[in-house]
């Protein structure tokens, strides 16, 4: 395991730590620049898709449950289907804003996606 801890390894330790810190700072700067780029990966599409589907399904499910409980079929199912769809779209939209694909203040985002405007 930690068998690297020989005495000779400590001889130029200060120097090596400094070199490693400088290197790390340089890498850190690189990361900072990367962070402005949208975090696009193959999970993005699936994530947004699941947000949309879950919103609709949860809305309809809740609507059906409430309707059969209160005996108001189909009013609440229709209402909650619409609200659930809106909620799903809101969540999908927020996810896209979060990963930087959409600029929430309108116009084009940083990525390939387009804003609302």
């Amino acid at each position: 395991m930690a068998d690297d801890d020989h005495d000779r390894a400590f001889a130029d330790l200060d120097q090596r730590i400094r070199a490693a810190r400088d290197q790390r700072e340089a890498v850190g700067k690189g990361n900072g620049a990367d962070r402005n780029q949208p975090k696009l990966n193959f999970g993005t599409g699936l994530t947004v898709g699941i947000e949309l589907v879950v919103g609709v399904v949860a809305g309809v499910g809740l609507g059906l449950a409430l309707d059969s409980w209160l005996g108001t079929r189909p009013i609440l199912t229709i209402l909650l289907f619409l609200l659930g769809t809106a909620a799903g779209m809101l969540n999908a939209w927020r996810h896209l804003v979060r990963i930087g694909m959409i600029d929430p203040h309108g116009g084009k985002g940083d990525g390939q996606g387009r804003g609302p405007g």
């Binding site: 699936l46 994530t47 699941i50 879950v54 919103g55 949860a58 609200l83 809106a86 799903g88 969540n91």
Partner: peptide, 22 residues
């Protein structure tokens, strides 16, 4: 407000469905 509340309450569903489906 109802849209916000629903969008907040579906969080555990989307969180769990995403992991399980994958």
């Amino acid at each position: 407000v109802p849209i916000e509340i629903i969008s907040y309450c579906v969080r555990p569903i989307s969180l769990s469905v995403r992991l399980f489906v994958n």
